[in-house]
């Protein structure tokens, strides 16, 4: 974390110094929360909420470090190569950690990673221009069935969090669209608004503004329940298509970190994020905190791996 001394450090350092005498974990050094995306994205903001309230609950500073090289592999390798002392943790969604590992040669095994705390769940959402023909999901599917490949969908990067539900949905609902990989949600949004692309797949934060002012319509969510940001948008399950593939943002430790330390981290991080100040910050930044402890987030992690293995096997058959 850069400029640390300029910013957060001073206050934390003063409170931290008092507790230094007994070298309890975690207190000797700042915790580095490494994320595989550029600064300013959803994962980054989620990390910064924790970072803002950490001093009080973790007895040390939490530095958010964004490293987006090599499709996220650089960040993961940095955490893996660091000493397994619990001071270097990974904050990621499943894209770089799981999808890439299932598709390419990576330096780690998936069971090397132990989820500590799930911070939030992100809902993949399909959207289109409000003044276009795609007014709801049913119409969308109908048109797509009549003209296979006639509808184009901008969905962020290939096999990204919004792309996989699209693939799943096409399998379940038996239709075909033209998948257009974009540099991210921003480009998908721009092409949909500009009319170059018929529909988009992204996450609620990307389209909240457009839905709010009526230029966009959110078609459906790939989650089990509706989300607060888009209360009127149905889930695909409600519409009769069993596609549930939310993305979690979860903090991982390497499995070699001592069990006691993992437990301490789990407890303290949960405590920090449940605090009123963290809740307030989350509210302000439009982040739904969906907190899960070690056991539950492990289950979510395993489920995701199983789901992705199935989807990717399907794709490779095509």
């Amino acid at each position: 974390m850069k400029f640390k001394h300029l910013v957060l450090a001073t206050s934390v350092a003063i409170t931290g110094a008092a507790g230094m005498a007994a070298a309890e974990f975690p207190s000797e050094q700042p915790i580095r929360l490494v994320n595989p995306y550029g600064a300013g994205g959803g994962v980054d903001i989620a990390g910064r909420i924790l970072s803002s309230v950490a001093g009080e609950f973790l007895d040390t500073r939490v530095d958010v470090i964004s490293i987006d090289g090599a499709g996220g592999q650089e960040a993961i390798n940095l955490v893996r190569d660091a000493e397994a002392d619990g001071y270097t943790l990974l904050l990621t969604d499943y894209g770089p950690l799981v999808t890439t590992a299932l598709r390419e040669d990576v330096s780690y095994d998936l069971d090397e990673w132990v989820p500590l705390v799930q911070i939030t769940e992100v809902a993949p959402v399909f959207f289109a221009r409000a003044d276009g023909p795609l007014t709801d999901m049913e119409t969308f599917i109908e048109i797509a069935r009549d003209d296979p490949g006639g509808i184009s969908v901008g969905h962020g990067r290939h096999l990204s969090v919004p792309h996989l539900p699209l693939i799943l949905l096409e399998g379940v609902a038996e239709f075909e669209t033209t998948h257009l990989p974009t540099t991210g949600g921003a480009q998908a949004l721009s092409f949909v608004l500009g009319g170059q692309v018929d529909a988009g797949a992204s996450v609620p934060s990307t389209i909240a503004g457009g839905v709010g002012d009526g230029s966009l319509v959110a078609l459906a969510l790939a989650t089990a329940d509706r989300v607060e940001a888009l209360p009127d948008t149905p889930t695909l399950q409600e519409l009769g298509y069993d596609v549930v593939l939310p993305a979690w943002y979860t903090i991982f430790a390497h499995r070699d970190v001592a069990e006691e330390r993992k437990a301490v981290l789990e407890e303290r991080i949960l405590e920090a994020l449940e605090s009123p100040s963290a809740q307030a910050l989350a509210q302000r930044s439009g982040t739904d905190l969906v907190l899960l402890g070690m056991e539950d987030s492990m289950e979510a992690y395993q489920t995701t791996i199983a789901n992705l293995e199935a989807i990717l096997a399907d794709i490779d058959e095509d």
Binding site: G38, A39, G40, G41, D44, I45, R48, A186, S205, A208, G209, G210, G212, D213, S215, L281, Q283, R284, S285, G286
Partner: peptide
């Protein structure tokens, strides 16, 4: 622009036409 957007989001302001 993405960083300023994030800053605005963290202030509780959603970037977009109604902002």
């Amino acid at each position: 622009a993405a960083l300023f957007g994030a800053a605005l989001i963290m202030m509780g302001i959603t970037p977009g036409p109604t902002m």
